[in-house]
Design a protein around this nucleic acid. Structure first.
Lengths: 348, 348
DNA sequence: CTGAAAGCGCTTACAG
DNA sequence: CTGAAAGCGCTTACAG
């Protein structure tokens, strides 16, 4: 092996080990090394072992820039999001990073703004320029069929996270929002509430309708229904939660329970309740959605629907980076939600 | 120009425009185009204009993978963080993305865990493999001199965000934590508080000592000092805030005000106060640090020290991507903090 | 199952 | 100020 030693290119002997070095040491062509790296089946098992051994010994890792150039595809996974809740984004990032850890894929952030008329073009430019390995789309951008069509057209792999099946199963990771909202409804009904308000998200979001439909279904099981006068459209933001709740709680027939479409708005309901001099849960029960950290930090701790966002992110990333064969042994493509009962709800 | 038209490589005529196409159209060598792209001064102004015009017309953008391979340096900016507060991370990301928007730099996430014995090696592997254009280090990893030394050794550019000058000015973005904490102390002293508790961060963090020193100084201006019995070490986490505050608030000589080293812990103080049956701010005033979103969402809204994290992120990113000449006209390398007075503090 | 040639789209080092 | 050659470290397409 000493005869293969190359003169170091700099004083610190940090000349990068390349596929050529490995090829020389293994007495094969660099193409064969490339085949081993890319797990091609067209390599004799014995050859593969020799090459892998040398790769392990030298600590060689292929240069991602060179691979990207030759592959015409980079090793970046783009997270495309347009989400009012920072916590959702952070949890999603964690899940994706869980999956990318120890791989040579990198997570790249692509926030966007659906209100921006050029937002699809911006994503498209990114795709054209950086040729990401794949994109993960979170609600509500995940619901944009035009965006998805553009990506297919551009031959860019993607996974859509959504509460409804809006694409091929292989390109979807689903969260069963309706079922989660149903749990919330049943919980409130079981506690004896009948005058129940719902502050939902923007009508342009699929999740809004999913959650509302599930909530309705849960109520219906107890012979209850959603009073239109107690059903308000929020914006999934804290401020909109405060505003809607202020209106609801000042009504003469004030609701005894409020189900908010996400935690951000639910926290807004807390503040509106306090400002109105109401006690939680004595005067009003509150249920949120997402189980973001704030729900357990606020007082009283909030009953909410847990969406396993981190798991969702992990599975979405695995979808993109795993070979098709592995995919069969893989995690589920849909996640059930669970109700986390804390202290913001109580029997009437 | 028609004679330069190349046969499209695929049906959709999406063969990428390359530097060669531009060179042909401009009647120069590709090297000259390269010089224009890289803003080399060694190009005649007239030539530069012609080339730039054609670049603009064709919408050409140089392939980042090819550039990275040739440059031996990628266009990725890595955010290296090990921070207990998700909000800090999100705000930092936003600021960095503000700066990278419309450039061809991409933000890549590199969370790490200082408790992991191999954490420096992990960062090092990333640097060796991906050759990032630069790294942004946030507290507390930014305080690790060994990490910085490794990066210098590896010729990897970086910016450290910290509350004290621990590196060359060009590699630092500072937040004046001490000065911010001083504002908090003066505020509480002016309100007439004298039995003031402080829950600080881990002793291993520089920010802990900066904030504590500033707080002490502010108190001293009013002839007050920090009682060691009312000074507890937290972990910058919500749970540690609850725990420390529970101990403080159950003392016979219960403090009338608590200054927490960050918002996360301050929110823990809220919960401990409520559990102890105390009213905020009537029974106890609370001041946090960071002005993360939760501080304005919680009830009563929290008085806290605002750290312009997003701005800090933006400036840190600009430091990395701007040419040296631009740097002179650039934003400041240090940020003052401000006290946001809300409703969690009141006169004794 | 394996390899030699050409190429991915840029930049460096050298020459003029 | 400009360019021809070689190279960055891989993979594709082809051949055997």
């Amino acid at each position: 092996m000493t005869e293969n030693t190359r003169k170091p290119k700099d004083a610190k002997d940090r000349a990068q080990v390349t596929i050529i070095d490995i090829a020389r040491m293994a007495n094969v062509s660099k193409k064969t090394v490339s085949r081993v790296i890319n797990k091609s089946p067209l390599v004799r098992e014995e050859t593969r072992e020799i090459v892998n051994k040398i790769i392990a010994e030298t600590g060689f890792t292929p240069n991602p820039q060179a691979r990207a150039l030759a592959f015409r595809r980079s090793f970046l996974i783009g997270l495309v999001y347009d989400n009012p809740s920072p916590q959702y984004v952070v949890n999603m990032q964690r899940g994706i990073l869980d999956a990318l850890d120890e791989t040579s894929f990198q997570l790249v952030l692509r926030p966007c703004d659906r209100a921006d008329a050029n937002y699809r073009e911006r994503v498209e430019s990114f795709v054209i320029q950086h040729k990401p390995y794949g994109l993960i789309l979170t609600p509500s951008v995940s619901e944009d069929d035009e965006l998805a069509a553009m990506l297919r057209d551009r031959n860019c792999d993607y996974v859509r996270i959504a509460s409804v099946e809006i694409d091929d199963a292989s390109r979807m990771v689903r969260t069963h929002d309706a079922q989660g909202a149903e749990l919330a409804a049943r919980h409130l009904a079981e506690l004896g509430h009948t005058r129940i308000a719902h502050i939902h998200g923007p009508n342009t979001f699929r999740s809004t309708h999913e959650r509302m439909a599930g909530f309705r279904k849960g109520l219906a099981d107890f012979g209850l229904s959603l009073d239109p006068k107690l059903t308000l459209e929020g914006a999934y933001t804290f401020d909109s939660g405060v505003e809607c709740a202020t209106r609801l709680l000042s009504r003469p027939d004030r609701p005894t329970a409020v189900f908010a479409g996400n935690d951000e708005m639910a926290v807004g309901v807390y503040v509106a309740a306090r400002k109105a001099g109401l006690q939680i849960p004595d005067d009003v029960s509150i249920v949120g959605f997402d189980d973001t950290p704030i729900s357990s930090r606020i007082w009283p701790p909030m009953t909410t629907v847990r969406s396993p966002i981190r798991d969702v992110g992990r599975v979405a990333a695995l979808r993109l980076i795993q070979a098709e064969e592995d995919e069969k042994t893989q995690a589920p493509g849909a996640f059930a939600l669970e109700l986390i009962v804390r202290e913001s709800t109580q029997a009437l």
